[in-house]
Amino acid sequence: MLVYHGSDHIIEKPEYGLGRDDCDYGRGFYTTKDKEKAHSWACLYGNEKSICNNYSIDLDNLTVVNLTEKGVLAWIAEVIANRGVKAERVATIGNLIRDKYKIDTTAADVLIGYRADDSYTEIIEAFLDGYLTIEEVEKLFYKGELGEQVFIKSQKAFDMLEYKGYEEVIDDEKYLNSDRYARRDVAEYLKRRRDQYSLGIEVKGLTAREVVLNNYKYEVIAGFGHYIIDDGKLDILR
């Protein structure tokens, strides 16, 4: 599989053990299968230069956990476990969701899932606040076009990375504008939902309070993801 990493410098040999613990999935190396996303991330975080580093990785002998296939709750719980939550008012419900829905990723060599940078964690906190549903969280991450990331987690996975060269990203403004427009649209949606919630308009769908008060499991039926409550009743479609 080919993967890409946007940066401000060339990285021929990513080093295991570097990075921050409070990123989406913890300390490791963040890549994507989407070269366009890597170009965008390079422009966002580059200084004098924007570089897209190219790699290949053989996943055959690695333990891969795809959080996208585990449902949005598993992904939210993983992000909360690593990033925490900024707003104290939602810390309790965030911790409850983490404890209840986080899957065990300790044996994973590679994690695959949505990307949530610092500003997009507002979507998760809006869900914890009660004015977004699980379905809306998923739609907003697609709308924000943050893309899916391939997280290189273990030493074994690092050893499997093979450097394939790099390219300098030239059209910075194209990627920066795309990101600005996406963030603007998401911010406007969040403000609209926050205003509706403050006016007492009912939030319809699976909320944070509901998933804490009841036990839900995620199943894929006929290619579609469903959250199902303990009694087997279909509660929400993805």
Rank of each mutant, 00 (worst) to 15 (best):
R183V: 01
Y197F: 08
M160R: 14
S154T: 04
A182Q: 11
Y181V: 04
L190K: 11
D185P: 13
Y175E: 05
N177S: 15
L190Y: 05
S154E: 00
K164F: 14
L199I: 00
A157Q: 04
L176R: 08
Q196S: 12
Y163C: 12
D185H: 10
D171M: 13
G165D: 08
L176I: 11
L161F: 05
E168I: 09
I152V: 13
S154D: 02
G165P: 12
D159V: 05
D172E: 13
Y189R: 08
D179G: 06
F158A: 07
R194G: 00
K156N: 03
Y197M: 06
S178Q: 15
L199H: 00
E188H: 10
K174R: 10
E173P: 04
E173Q: 12
V186A: 04
E188I: 07
F158T: 03
V169Q: 07
V186Q: 03
Y175S: 09
K156M: 00
A157E: 02
Y181R: 15
R184F: 11
Y166H: 14
A157S: 07
A157P: 05
F158W: 09
F158H: 09
S154K: 01
I170K: 14
A187K: 13
D195P: 00
I152Y: 02
F158P: 06
E167A: 12
Q155V: 12
V186K: 01
L161K: 03
L190D: 04
I152D: 01
Y166W: 11
I170M: 05
I170E: 13
K191Q: 14
F151V: 01
F151A: 04
G200T: 00
K174H: 15
G200S: 03
L199N: 00
A157D: 02
Y166S: 02
Y197I: 01
L161E: 03
Y181I: 10
L190H: 04
D179H: 11
E188W: 13
L161D: 02
A157T: 08
E162C: 13
R194N: 08
Y197D: 02
G200E: 02
K191E: 05
D195F: 05
L176S: 01
E168W: 02
E167F: 12
Y181K: 15
V150C: 03
V186R: 04
E167K: 06
R180Q: 13
G165F: 06
M160Y: 08
E168D: 11
R183S: 04
A182P: 01
K191C: 11
M160L: 12
V150E: 12
S198Y: 07
N177K: 15
R184N: 12
R194C: 02
A157G: 03
R192H: 07
D185G: 12
D159L: 06
R193L: 02
S154N: 00
S198K: 07
R183F: 09
L161P: 13
G200I: 08
I170V: 10
N177Q: 15
M160K: 15
K153E: 05
K164Q: 14
E162A: 09
E188D: 07
K153H: 09
D195T: 06
R194L: 09
I170Q: 06
E168T: 04
Y175C: 06
A157L: 11
A157N: 04
L176H: 05
K191N: 08
I152Q: 06
D185F: 11
E167P: 00
K174S: 13
R192A: 09
F158V: 02
R193W: 03
E168V: 06
V150F: 12
D179R: 15
A182H: 01
D195L: 06
F158K: 08
S178P: 08
E167W: 07
R184L: 12
Y197L: 10
D195S: 03
